[in-house]
């Protein structure tokens, strides 16, 4: 039973946490791709930027002595999301809108997004240095231990408070997005524009406004994902730069331009990563005596150092077998 608890802690919980972060990031990428037709490389750095905005707000709130029932990172998250959405709008207005106005090809926008990546990276490192920070400098993370002795296990299922909140916040955000896309006027306009931008414009949809709404949603979700990642591990300037690849993999696996696909893709990639690096020999431990001795003690599919390759292998397989993604995306 202990082995199963270990599996649950290592795979189910970390997979769900990783999956929700990937899903939130991938939604932003997939929405931007659906509306503006370019792969937004700077998304990872918008996540980092959002996390730093939250960090400043937390520092400010702690300085004036605010306290709350939840970790401060979650309390200030709504404000940080608003600020991040504003920053996303500013980035669009400053760097992408002029290129779009000139009628530049999507590839040019993709290269411009690399420029934005570099500038955000440079600014963050300039102001915050390269060292790691934590949101839990004052108070340690609260850890919930669910006793499993009822099932004959000595180890508890352990999950930190931020992890539970993270999964809950993701569910709320995804539901809100669902109702926004299906019920509201803007959401319907967004879906129409993702299908066919010219047709949407002819039918009287204000495309410029839709683009702005897209950036607001993408920026806010990026801030949320970045903050959650920083809450789960630590806050570093190259935080999101390293996960931009799994996020893109999630978006492509789900079908670029397809919001629900991005969610599914995020969880798929998250669970695939934790399953691949899990040491399956642990589950065989109770039967150790009955097994032949040539079975090694390390049966993980992929060594931990190569975790990043998992996302990529999934990506390549999907691109080869079903290039439009699991759900048919806005791919040509």
């Amino acid at each position: 039973m202990n082995e199963f608890i270990f599996f649950f802690n290592k795979v189910i919980i970390s997979g769900a946490v990783l999956g929700s972060i990937y899903a939130l990031g991938a939604i932003g990428i997939t929405l931007i791709f659906g509306i503006l037709r370019f792969a937004h490389f700077a998304h990872g750095d918008m996540m980092t930027l959002g996390a730093f905005v939250t960090f400043i707000l937390v520092a400010a709130a702690t300085a004036i002595g605010l306290t709350g029932p939840l970790p401060m990172g979650f309390m200030v998250l709504p404000i940080a999301m608003v600020i991040a959405a504003g920053l996303a709008l500013g980035i669009d207005k400053g760097f992408y809108a002029p290129l779009r106005a000139r009628g530049a090809k999507p590839v040019t926008l993709l290269i411009a997004s690399i420029g934005v990546t570099l500038m955000i990276q440079g600014l963050i490192r300039l102001f915050f240095g390269v060292k790691s920070r934590t949101f839990f400098a004052e108070a340690p993370k609260e850890i919930y231990r669910i006793d499993m002795s009822f099932f004959g296990a000595t180890r508890p299922i352990s999950v930190t408070q931020p992890q539970i909140l993270m999964i809950l916040v993701t569910i709320v955000a995804v539901l809100a997005l669902h109702f926004f896309l299906t019920k509201s006027k803007f959401g319907k306009a967004m879906r129409a524009m993702a299908d066919n931008a010219d047709l949407a414009q002819v039918s009287g949809i204000n495309t410029k406004l839709v683009i702005r709404v897209t950036w607001v949603i993408a920026g806010a979700l990026a801030c949320m994902a970045g903050t959650m990642l920083a809450l789960d591990v630590t806050l570093k300037p190259d935080l999101a730069f390293n996960i931009v690849l799994p996020i893109f993999a999630a978006a492509i696996v789900g079908g670029l331009g397809h919001a629900y696909g991005a969610i599914a893709g995020g969880f798929l990639v998250g669970f695939a990563e934790t399953l691949a690096v899990f040491n399956w020999a642990v589950l065989l431990r109770p039967f150790r005596e009955n097994l032949p001795s040539w079975i090694s003690n390390d049966l993980s599919l992929v060594p931990t150092e190569y975790k990043l390759t998992v996302a990529f292998v999934i990506l390549v397989i999907v691109l080869l077998v079903r290039p439009t993604g699991i759900f048919k995306g806005a791919s040509s």
Binding site: L245, A249, I252, A311, P323
Partner: peptide, 28 residues
């Protein structure tokens, strides 16, 4: 052989992934 023939954006992601894998391999 694997990646060419993908669209521009996909090729960009695929090649960035390959270079990360090469880095992981050589490093480890």
């Amino acid at each position: 052989k694997i990646c060419l023939g993908l669209r521009t954006d996909y090729l960009a992601i695929a090649t960035i992934g390959v270079s990360e894998i090469i880095r992981a391999l050589i490093k480890n």
